[in-house]
């Protein structure tokens, strides 16, 4: 976290911070339910399903880092670890479980 002095020297644009957070959470919400669909089709159960979700979110994080942030994560996020790599992972897990169970039940009725 930057100190007051650093903030005074190089101010932060709140609008951009909000915009970046919104972009990340949009992608997370869409991909989380997508991973749920995939793990339901694959028929994953218990731990392997959650492992699949974590692996998938990590893959999406890498994609965001490489394609959207161009490798310069410090330029777009105040705390890259919590905003890019771990942002909205827990919130997305709810929709993941929802679509996971739905598609597991649909495919293996």
């Amino acid at each position: 976290m930057p100190t007051e002095r650093e903030l005074a020297i190089s101010p932060i644009v709140q609008e951009s911070v909000q915009h970046n957070t919104r972009v990340i959470s949009n992608i997370r919400a869409l991909t989380a339910s997508l991973f749920g669909v995939a793990s339901g089709i694959l028929g994953l159960e218990s731990y392997s399903g959650f492992a699949f979700y974590l692996l998938g979110t990590f893959f999406v994080s890498i994609l965001i880092w490489a394609l959207l942030a161009n490798g310069k994560q410090g330029q777009y996020f105040q705390g890259p670890l919590s905003e890019l790599w771990a942002g909205d992972v827990l919130g997305g897990s709810m929709s993941f479980v929802l679509t996971w169970t739905l598609f597991y039940g649909l495919v293996r009725a």
Partner: peptide, 18 residues
């Protein structure tokens, strides 16, 4: 789909004012 979604997302904006 993941690649498509990430590529199609809005561009990030730099947060430092300068």
């Amino acid at each position: 789909i993941c690649v498509g979604l990430v590529v199609g997302a809005e561009e990030l904006k730099p947060i430092t004012w300068r």
